[in-house]
Amino acid sequence: MKLLLATRNVGKIVEISRMLKPLGVDVIQPEEEIPVEERGKSFMENAYLKALAYFKRYGIPTLADDSGLVVPSLEGYPGIYSSRFYSLDWGGREEVETGKDQANIKKLLRLLEGNQDRRAYFKAVLCLMIEEEFYIFTEGICHGEIAESPRGSGGFGYDPIFKPLGYEKTMAELSPEEKDSLSHRGKAIKKLSQLLETCKHSIFYQKVRST
């Protein structure tokens, strides 16, 4: 089985490829990034928009991911704006000094300074599109809290400041195997695998397997 990933984000490509390999899925990286206006109001809507844009460009089964960090005490931000949180007027813009991930983290920690409620969760929604009118969604959530300062060198995005529920380590301090077993994206991919297995005699499954 081969699937095109609707992203040029290196961190996502590495992570998703690693999790799909045991399932017998070969990941195809797009040759170019397709501009997608993420005008959706939810992770699901944006995942669909990404899958549709890449499917139209390449014409092969496409897997899109839209994910982010939700902090209830910050009115749900960064949420669907997670990748560009630093640039939002909400909460004040943050200068990009060493990279966008670092700017996002710096802004989030600034806004949470002195806040005792540091609960947060990662959410990922996957959209697997076989044809324009033929697609399915799965989602995964990982609950936890925001650490006082960044720790660890693994992962990407907000991983250095997110401690999964029951862990003192941040996501960036976990091994790839540990992260895959509990992460929001890992849970969404596991659900996708289970769904395809359950529906293995369906037309949808046969279309996926024929790629």
Rank of each mutant, 00 (worst) to 15 (best):
G114L: 11
V25A: 15
L108D: 05
C127F: 01
K190V: 10
M171N: 11
K41G: 14
N115E: 15
G155Y: 04
Y48R: 13
L128P: 04
Q29T: 11
F55M: 03
E178H: 13
E139N: 14
A172D: 07
V27W: 02
G59L: 02
E37K: 15
V208A: 09
K12D: 05
K169M: 12
S67I: 00
R209Y: 08
E168A: 10
K190H: 05
T198D: 10
L112N: 09
R118S: 14
Y205E: 11
R93S: 15
Q206L: 15
Q206Y: 14
K107L: 07
T98G: 04
N104F: 03
K56V: 00
L69P: 07
M1E: 08
K21P: 02
C199K: 13
R119P: 01
R8C: 14
L88V: 03
E139Y: 05
G11A: 09
E31I: 01
A124G: 12
C199Q: 11
K169N: 13
G99L: 08
G91F: 00
M171V: 08
D180P: 13
A6C: 09
Q29S: 14
R84M: 12
I141D: 04
L63I: 05
T138Q: 05
S17P: 09
I13C: 13
N9S: 12
I34W: 06
T62Y: 01
Y58F: 09
R110Q: 09
K50V: 02
K100I: 13
Y167V: 03
M129I: 11
C127Y: 00
I189T: 02
P22M: 07
E131N: 11
S87R: 10
P35M: 06
D65H: 00
M171H: 08
Y158I: 08
D65M: 01
V70I: 05
E168R: 06
